[in-house]
């Protein structure tokens, strides 16, 4: 059990973080809190991806030292460098999550201009009064 915990604990951490984000998105009534929950949710996915790229042992960042020139393919020990692909994917995903947050904030500004509040209950009340 302890071995299982030690070898997988970071996957569990991402699940916990993700569920915190999901809870904030679904249960909180304040729209900004929902947005923050969304960011936590996306960060959890990013954390998961980055942890795929990790290798234990004698490992360094995926930047090759100078001196490797043409034809020295054998000299590079693959196990010596982190897996670069998840990092690349997450650079893209981070940008996407920032862009989504930016769009969501712009929409929140529109909502605030219209209703003068960002509490979902109050907005629904205003809508109901306008409807009747």
């Amino acid at each position: 059990m302890l071995e299982l915990l030690l070898s997988k604990y970071n996957y569990w951490l991402y699940v916990i973080l993700m569920m915190i984000g999901l809870y904030a998105m679904l249960a909180k009534r304040n729209l900004v809190k929902k947005l923050i929950g969304m960011n936590i949710f996306q960060t959890a996915v990013i954390l998961f991806y980055v942890s795929i790229g990790v290798k234990t042992g004698d490992v360094t960042v995926p930047i090759l030292p100078y001196g490797h020139h043409h034809g020295h393919e054998q000299a590079i020990n693959v196990a010596h460098y982190l897996n670069p692909l998840p990092h690349v994917l997450m650079l893209t995903a981070i940008v996407v999550s920032i862009a989504t947050a930016g769009v969501a904030l712009a929409v929140l500004i529109l909502i605030y201009r219209r209703y003068r509040t960002l509490e979902e209950d109050e907005i629904l009340k205003i809508n109901q009064e306008a409807g009747t």
Partner: peptide, 13 residues
């Protein structure tokens, strides 16, 4: 805007 915000939340999930 409010409908969009809900869409953003669900779409992002």
């Amino acid at each position: 805007p409010l409908a969009t915000f809900r869409y953003i939340i669900m779409g992002t999930i």
